[in-house]
Amino acid sequence: MAEMNMAKAINLALLEAMTKDPKVIVMGEDVGPDEGVFRITEGLYAKFGGDRVIDTPLAESGIIGTAIGMAIYGMKPVCEIQFSGFDYYNYHQLESHAARFRNRTRGRLTVPMVMRAPYGGGIRALEHHSESREAIYAHTPGLKVVIPSGPRNARALLHSAIQDPDPVIYYEPKACYRLFREDVPETMETLPIGKAQVVKQGTDITLISYGASMRATLEAAESLEEEDGVKPEIIDLLSICPLDTDTIIESVRKTGRAVVIHEGPRTCGLAAEVIARINEKVLEYLEAPVLRVTGYDVPIPYFSKEQAYLPDSDKVLNAARKTLSF
C-alpha cells in the first residue's frame, strides 16, 4: 500500500501500463519534457523516450485523428487533451470515426484508444478551462465514458480503459488531482467498466453522483447522518457510459428515494438519464420524485462566480431533505 493523490495515481497507472505493454503510447500537447501541464505524465518521457511519449503539434483533432490510425494499426494510444474545454476540436474524429469503425467494418477494424482530459470547475481557472461536458460523450454511441473520483479508482479505471478493446473517454476531475490522498495497493487493479460502486450502504435515500461532485455528495451525506439521523446510500457511478442500471435500481428499490448530483449542465445531463432509468424500472418503489442537483444550463461562469454554479453540499442537503420530507 502506498498513499498518494489522484494525479500521482493516474501517473502510476500510465507508468504501469507502459511498462507492461509496449504498444501503449502516450501522446498530447506538452506531455513530454514538460510532463503535462498538471504533471500527469511525470517521468514518462525520461523513461520511455519520444517514440512512446509524443509531444504533438498543437492540434487536438490531429491528436485524436492520428491516434485512431495508430489504434487501428495495433497500438494503444492514450491521448491527453490538455483541458476538456478544447476537446470540441477533436469531437468530430471521435464521433464520426473512433466511435464507428468497429460498427461500420462489422468488427474487422477496432479503435482501442483512450482520451484523457481534465474536466470540471473549482480551481479558479480561466475561460474554457472548467467545463463539464461528459454528457456529450455519453450521448455518442460507440464511446465509453469513465470518470474517477479518487486516487484508487482513478488508477484502476485507467488500467481498465487502456485494456478496453474500444475507445474510452477518461475524464479527470481536475479539482481532485491534489485534493486528498488515499491508499493505493501495490498490485495493479482494474475496475469493470460499466459497473458503479456503492461506496456507503444505507436504507433511507440513494445519493448518486460521480467525479468531483462526489465530494459534495459525501459531505452532505455526513450531515444527513449527523443532523437528521438519516441513513443515506451513496453510489459512485464511475462509469457514465455504459451506465450501471442494476446497481441504481437495486438501491432505489430499497430506499424509495434518490437524488442525482453532477456539475455538468442540467438539460440532457447524466441525471436525466439516471432518472429515466429509475422511472422505467422502479417507479412503483418511489416514495418521492427523484431530484437532481446539477450545474445550470449556462456556460460555467468565470471563476469569480463559479462556486455559485457548482453543486455544493448545501444544495445536495436541501434536495435530499426535500425528497425525504415529500
Binding site: 442540467r266 445550470y296 444550463d297 449556462v298 456556460p299 461562469p301 469569480s304 462566480k305 455559485a308 454554479y309
Partner: peptide, 26 residues
C-alpha cells in the same frame, strides 16, 4: 458584478422559462 444571478441573463436575448426557473432556484 458579484451577483451570481447574472450568469443567467446573457445566454439568450430573453431568459427562457426553464432558465428563469433555475435562476429562481439559485
Amino acid at each position: 458584478l458579484l451577483n451570481p444571478l447574472n450568469m443567467f441573463d446573457h445566454l439568450y436575448e430573453d431568459v427562457p422559462p426553464y432558465l428563469q426557473e433555475q435562476k429562481d432556484e439559485l
